[in-house]
Design a protein around this nucleic acid. Structure first.
Length: 520
RNA sequence: GGCCCCGUCGUCUAGCCAGGUUAGGACACAGGCCUUUCAAGCCUGCAGCACGGGUUCAAAUCCCGUCGGGGUCACCA
């Protein structure tokens, strides 16, 4: 039997980090078993523009390399894959349920239902609908309709016995049928609700394993009831623990950004992103730019491999030591048996660590491709295709080594691209390294003259030059080196000074030193 | 509140099913080394079986209870 799994997002306009973890596990399981991964769009309740709201979700999944074998844009033999286009299938199911007596037409008003619910609460008993307005005969139906009552279709749930669900992750879970509600499956206007639609689609799409978040565990009895009533073979169920807030066990939510900002690591992650967004002129309001949303990571220049690796380890592990996986290794190693039951909280610091690790592994060519768009968007380079630009950026990347953690970090090195007369100086650094030390100006002036005569202008020759200089001047290297760095880069920190000077080039180095000296 | 689920360092986790480990790893944090700065790297350290009973020669592991946390209780998905 071919394994078939599905991920069923609603078109909400964004891809949530918790949602993508669910999608990833479904995908990994299908790929591990040589099966198919299906994308289904749960748009039964959508008024808005579905295509527009779906686009970021499809884009995010693609970016992460979570590809689907059937679904939007790729089609498939069992489509359509949009619930909004499958109304006839749901109607057929409702008709069958009605005919078999496992569902009924109900004419209770919202108020009447609410009254029953409150009464039950007062008497401290579990609410179950009295079925007072259940139409058992065509006569009942005619009467209720004559009264002008709106009718819906409800499930006629069993009122005794227990259900045992064999969950692949949680083991056997028991429910009392008597506590399950007669849920509405079809509204008065004929539209069908999620539970009915989901069960019908899982059957039609031949889903073998329903892998989803824990929040659906308590929905499972009614879905099993529907499936059984329709004579469907049940899929296997696997309920994943939820992805929780940083430092908590509560489900991660897009809306609680203000709360998460109290977490130091989370705040640092967002702030880092905002700095990059600002430099490339990207809007960064929380609706769209937010570490709970996958887009954020693409926008600031994370590696999809790093996100996937981190997310895979949120609730799953292979053993006691393996942490770093390639996509292929994950596919080979993944199994539902090793998924945890307890919620796993999202740790921004650990995500960053994975990003750093994967970035270190990335070849320079890949980093170059990642980084060029940022320089271009920031207006620092004209064309990313120019050979001279590529060579220069590659040199910077080489010299920067591990300092560039996300692609957007390349903007920390904007000083290699700005015109000499527009180089911004860090005020504190300039004060400390150039203005305050009494000898800094004179020393720097004399070093400038040596620099002017240097040929060739390379890291090795620069290194020798400076060491000769400090020896002949009889000063400590610390007395001059910081002054040079600030004069050339405007900053107190950066990668190797000699590489920096060589990349800036002799004419610019001299111009920048002259300008700094002029401001003392 | 009812029902369901869960509980090992601050966080992600290994170990639990088949009882015997100095309870292992990673991130974070602290200190050190390296060093022209910042990173990186290397070394060291800090820190955990929620609690209480029971079973047993022996319990993180099996059983019972308590406490704590989470999910869910829609004509949302």
């Amino acid at each position: 039997m071919t394994v078939r799994t599905r991920f069923a997002p609603s078109p909400t306009g964004y891809l949530h980090i918790g949602g993508v973890r669910t999608a990833l596990f479904c995908w990994l399981f299908a790929r591990n078993r040589g099966g198919r991964f299906i994308l289904r769009i749960d748009d039964t309740d959508q008024q808005r523009n579905v295509d527009e709201a779906l686009e970021p979700i499809l884009h995010g999944l693609r970016w992460l390399g979570i590809d689907w074998d059937e679904g939007p844009e790729v089609g498939g033999p069992l489509g359509p894959y949009y619930q909004s286009q499958r109304a006839d299938r749901y109607q057929a199911a409702v008709d069958k349920l009605l005919a078999d007596g496992t569902a009924y037409r109900d004419y209770a008003t919202t108020e009447e239902l609410q009254a029953e619910r409150e009464a039950a609460q007062r008497e401290k008993r579990t609410f179950v609908y009295s079925r007072r307005f259940m139409a058992e005969t065509p006569e009942d139906q005619a009467r209720f309709e004559a009264e002008g009552r709106p009718g819906v279709v409800r499930l006629k749930m069993p009122r005794e016995g227990t259900l045992v669900i064999d969950d692949l992750i949680r083991g056997q879970v028991e429910f009392d049928w008597a506590r399950e509600q007669d849920h509405v499956i079809q509204r008065a206007d004929g539209s069908c609700l999620y539970h009915l639609a989901s069960v019908v689609d899982d059957h039609d799409f031949e889903i073998t394993h329903v892998i989803r978040a824990e929040e659906h565990l308590s929905n499972t009895p009614r879905q099993i009831f529907i499936a059984r009533s329709l004579g469907y073979e049940l899929p296997a169920y696997a309920h994943l623990p939820c992805v929780a807030e940083p430092g908590s066990k509560t489900k991660l939510s897009k809306r609680k950004l203000a709360k998460y900002l109290k977490n130091r690591d989370f705040a640092a992650l967002l702030e880092h992103g905002q700095k990059i967004a600002a430099a490339i002129g990207l809007e960064s309001e929380p609706e769209t730019f937010n570490p709970v949303i996958v887009d954020f990571y693409e926008q600031v220049g994370y590696l999809p491999e790093a996100i996937v690796n981190y997310l895979a380890l949120l609730g799953w592990s292979l053993d006691d030591k393996t942490e770093h996986f390639t996509r292929q290794q994950l596919v080979e190693a993944f199994s539902l048996e090793r998924v945890n039951k307890a919620p796993a909280s999202f740790d921004p610091a650990k995500l960053s660590a994975f990003q750093q690790h994967h970035m270190q592994q990335a070849p320079i060519e890949q980093k170059l491709a990642m980084v060029l768009p940022y320089l271009q968007k920031a207006g620092l380079i004209e064309s990313p295709d120019s050979e001279a630009t590529r060579r220069k950026v590659a040199e910077i990347l080489q010299a920067a080594g591990d300092r560039i953690k996300v692609a957007g970090d390349v903007l920390d090195y904007a000083y290699f691209f700005v015109p000499d007369d527009q180089l911004p100086y860090g005020e504190k650094a300039f004060e400390k390294r150039l203005r305050k030390p009494a000898e800094a100006g004179e020393l720097l002036g004399r070093f400038r003259d040596r620099l002017a005569a240097l040929e060739p202008f390379e890291p090795e020759t620069l290194d020798r030059l400076l060491h000769d200089f400090v020896e002949s001047e009889n000063v400590e290297i610390g007395q001059i080196i910081h002054a040079i760095r600030v004069a050339i880069t405007g900053k107190a920190v950066g990668f190797g000074l000699f590489e920096s000077l060589a990349i800036v080039g002799k004419p610019s180095c001299l111009a920048r030193i002259d300008r700094a000296l002029g401001q003392l």
